[in-house]
Nucleic acid binder design. Structure first.
Lengths: 119, 119
DNA sequence: ATTATTACGAAACCATTAGTTGCGCAAATT
DNA sequence: AATTTGCGCAACTAATGGTTTCGTAATAAT
């Protein structure tokens, strides 16, 4: 449900920053960060918002985890930023969408296979 | 930046529920809700999460509003101006994803091209 | 080797503040 | 006109977010 402590640690490590460094950016002590990551305390909304700015992630990612976003079938759903949620796309469209991006590769493979199929 | 107080009031009104009613769902007093909406205080993360459950909105919508440009994981998603939405990034991995899903189509095209290239 | 330095955790304490209690007051309902 | 509904405000307190202080393990430096 609330994955904030683990998320904070994970994201912080990913950005290769220390608790000390993060603390100075938030104008809190290093130990405060430690408590957040160990689940001993929870930052107030202001600091939560600051964290989203520093790490450039959404609030939902910060407290629910990235799985919240990747849990959906991304070949079936696309992210609609306007409504901040995933919406279903037309399944048959996917093939042509991908084809429009990779027609050159398909053609290349086709020609290679086609060339050898002569013999 | 932080539009939570206004957002809460707005969303609550949209769902046609009263401060009293909302309070009982959160097991807090009616006055607590009043303070949240007037910006006199801010709910802790637990109550924020409960609010997202009750209203069925994202945390970002709740504190930033729907108009807010939501942060998207740009390593996973890129904005496609053609379709005016975020789509899964077309990277090296996706090509193989595509190929594994549509190898039959590639083969078909290959054979067609190969067939005609005989003449 | 041993002395810093880096990176973090844990306990005790304090100060802020989230949430409660109590009062009041319009605007609908009855 | 009396009651109910819906909400805001001031004073209080109980909870807790953040600090201070102490400790430890792991590297890096001398």
């Amino acid at each position: 449900m609330n994955k904030f402590p683990a998320q904070l640690k994970k994201i912080r490590k990913e950005q290769n920053t220390t608790q000390d460094d993060l603390a100075s950016q938030l104008f809190v002590t290093r130990q405060a960060i430690s408590k957040w990551e160990s689940g001993d305390s929870t930052p107030d909304l202001n600091n939560l918002i600051k964290l989203t700015d520093i790490f450039n992630v959404s609030l939902d990612t910060l407290v629910f985890g990235a799985e919240h976003e990747t849990k959906v079938d991304t070949s079936e759903f696309v992210f609609d930023p306007k409504h901040n949620r995933y919406v279903r796309r037309l399944g048959k469209m996917n093939f042509w969408d991908f084809l429009s991006g990779y027609w050159w590769a398909v053609l290349a493979i086709a020609f290679i296979i086609g060339f050898f199929s002569i013999f």
